[in-house]
């Protein structure tokens, strides 16, 4: 349905997006994952025709949208990262404005406004001014505004940044429902791994403007099929231990986490005894350890050498 072909964008000397090939099939929910500055928003801007690519193409049903963006704009709903609403107007007035802008017919506009408000759970508070809403509620109206014209493809650019868990769950549920019940094609960008894991059938992982991996969750996890992930908790943290573990031959990556350290090692290398000894040598103790199934977070760490929040 939608594909990008060697899509690139260069700002002055800096290559923000570098020859990205992506595709979205009809009814799919696709995640675009990457840390801040990976080039996700630039990619989305080019796909949605807001930004002209330096090279490459975006095709909708086989037709280029670069020269004639009107076709993609008709079927696209974009939820921007920022709250693109008039804060001095009520939720209802904002939606009415965007409905008129999108030329939703007068006789069905009222009905559509109530539908999307119901969808985002703000029907009861539609008359209140947006500026009085919490961050999460604003984001929900932000999504509602992109749904008024019943787009076939919905692009969401980090729609859950900086909001409370309740609103976040509501947004995730709404997006899931839109995809499963209405068959809307979703492109969801985030740097929250668990959101993408929960919502998307396929994932593109971006770093430094490039797609470093793509595929279904299982396909991506299979990248780590040759590795074990061990979560270790310590009686006290030690930089020396971190260094000692990094020096072990079977260890591929070590990450300092809030609770202790996460070690990715060669599958079946059985380094537990070495870890215990190393801890004793630097004067600390392992209080708890756990073998973990690899997550997409581990895949990202493996591919880029850093965590998503770096």
């Amino acid at each position: 349905m939608l594909e990008t072909i060697k899509l690139s964008k260069t700002f002055k000397e800096k290559k923000a997006v570098d020859e990205i090939d992506m595709y979205l099939d009809e009814g799919e929910s696709v995640g675009l994952l990457g840390p801040n500055g990976a080039g996700k928003s630039t990619t989305i801007s080019m796909i949605s025709s807001l930004l002209k690519p330096s090279s490459g193409d975006v095709k909708l049903n086989g037709l280029s949208t670069i020269k004639n963006p009107s076709e993609i704009r008709k079927v696209l709903g974009v939820v921007p990262q920022e709250i693109a609403l008039y804060e001095e107007l009520s939720a209802y007035e904002n939606l009415k404005f965007f409905g008129k802008i999108y030329k939703v017919k007068k006789d069905i506009l009222e009905e559509r406004i109530q539908e999307v408000l119901e969808m985002v759970g703000l029907k009861e508070r539609q008359k209140e001014l947006v500026k009085t809403f919490s961050g999460g509620m604003k984001r929900r109206v932000n999504i509602a505004a992109a749904l008024l014209h019943k787009p076939k493809i919905l692009i969401l650019d980090e729609p859950t940044v900086g909001i409370d868990p309740q609103s976040r769950n509501h947004i995730l549920e709404t997006v899931k429902k839109l995809n499963e019940e209405t068959g809307m094609t979703i492109l969801y960008t985030s740097h929250y791994m668990e959101e993408v894991e929960q919502l998307c059938n396929r994932v593109y992982i971006m770093d430094h403007g490039r797609v470093v991996a793509s595929g279904s969750k299982q396909e991506l996890l299979s990248i780590l099929s040759t590795e074990d992930t061990i979560q270790v908790q310590l009686s006290k943290k030690s930089d020396a231990l971190l260094e000692a573990i990094k020096g072990m031959a079977a260890v591929r990556q070590v990450e300092d986490t809030n609770h202790g350290i996460r070690v990715i090692s060669k599958k079946g290398s059985n380094i537990l005894a070495d870890l215990v000894h190393a801890a004793e040598n630097v004067g600390t103790q392992i209080t708890h350890f756990q073998m973990e199934d690899p997550s997409l977070e581990d895949v990202f760490l493996h591919l880029t050498g850093k965590t998503l929040r770096d």
């Binding site: 949605s48 807001l50 704009r73 921007p80 920022e82 709250i83 693109a84 609403l85 999108y102 505004a145």
Partner: peptide, 11 residues
Amino acid sequence: SGIWNRLILSP
């Protein structure tokens, strides 16, 4: 605020 982009994407 991003409203302008929304308008650009509209008809």
